[in-house]
Write a protein that binds this DNA or RNA. Sequence first.
DNA 1: AGAACTAAGGTACCACAGTACCTAATTTAG
DNA 2: CTAAATTAGGTACTGTGGTACCTTAGTTCT
Lengths: 217, 217
Amino acid sequence: MPNYQQNSHNKSLKSDHPTHRRRGQELEQDILKATLNLVQETKYEDLTMDMIAKNAQTNKTVLYRRWSSKSDIVIAALRTQTTGLAEQLKQVPNTGSLAGDFHQLFAQINTLLATLHYENLFGLMRERLGGISIRDYFDKFLQQNWLSQMVRIFFKQAADRGEIDLDQIDESLYDLPAFLLLNRIYAPHSQAIDSAQLNHLIDAVLMPMYSAFLKKK
Amino acid sequence: MPNYQQNSHNKSLKSDHPTHRRRGQELEQDILKATLNLVQETKYEDLTMDMIAKNAQTNKTVLYRRWSSKSDIVIAALRTQTTGLAEQLKQVPNTGSLAGDFHQLFAQINTLLATLHYENLFGLMRERLGGISIRDYFDKFLQQNWLSQMVRIFFKQAADRGEIDLDQIDESLYDLPAFLLLNRIYAPHSQAIDSAQLNHLIDAVLMPMYSAFLKKK
DNA sequence: AGAACTAAGGTACCACAGTACCTAATTTAG
DNA sequence: CTAAATTAGGTACTGTGGTACCTTAGTTCT
């Protein structure tokens, strides 16, 4: 049988408990603030729920009552910092040229990412992927060292056939097929890729794209 | 003090221990075989090291002596199945047209993915990303519902200006900027994105790509 | 003011990845 | 053939995410 009878005098001993029990919004804000502090100086994996709880002067149970996982609480904390910026991002640039619109949009996104200290955060995502490291395996097939290399060869072959003019092609373009494939794979709700989809990718996306560099016959 | 003195008669009781202690290659093969079996019928997260150990009739310690993590052992198991196919993938298609080369390559990749039962495995990767679920957060900004939508508007604006002909544009093309950004973020060794990179992305990749659809002035 | 309810505090627990440390079988060196 | 080195077997432990369950402070209803 537990000995909770001591509690009444424990309380007086227990350091700085100001007799005030935080609730609702107040508590939530304190927790998120603590999380935000920690997340900026700690790698995500090294951040523990107990650390957050301790830092916010509460305990895990309280955390899990509001957020269902560690990642949820971190997200919530980030959101408090960025909702203003996110609003700003909702405004559609209209600079008078397609290129100009893109430049402005990307600049805004860049600002958002900087505000988020995202180097750490995506460091985390990459580490998790790396930790699973099936990524390591697939990188061999889908990433630069292999797929981009192969695309490079395709273009060389096409140039030899007189199909295309190599000089205009930026290095980054060789990575595009790999990008497209990887995105299909990482996509949040994607099902298994079937060959119909892959063919569509080539005919409706890749080839029209590359057609910019195909010589007119 | 432990009672290992019983072992000699325990052995006779202990089911089917054939008195033969596996080592080296033999043991390793058995473990990988067990892993492979399990991985095909179990979601990655539900797969535990103890399960693998039990299934291979050994114990965790032995597993960690050879592989440094759960993901490593799963990868190793997969590799046993696919090294042959991977070799095959190293051959460069040369069909006589750029489009043809792509089709053949993608088909080969598709076969590889199918062989790997990758629906489960990438299910896993997505779940981990989802689990981190910072993904959820960024999806709002970088994924279809927002970024692609914005790109769509850009094109509409451009069409209104007479800069571009909307009819030729495949839906998938609207997703391209999001893809490019996400890949920068997920890329295994990427550093923080700076605005110079983003601008290069637009000028050297996106715009040349979309130029296929720009009206000749 | 007091009873009933709500939400926070707190402790202990579970499952699983990964480690420490031991014993025992098998191989290899001498 | 025996001793030393190697490597498998086994148990128990730690740390962390997450849950169960209880007690207690504070709020709200009557």
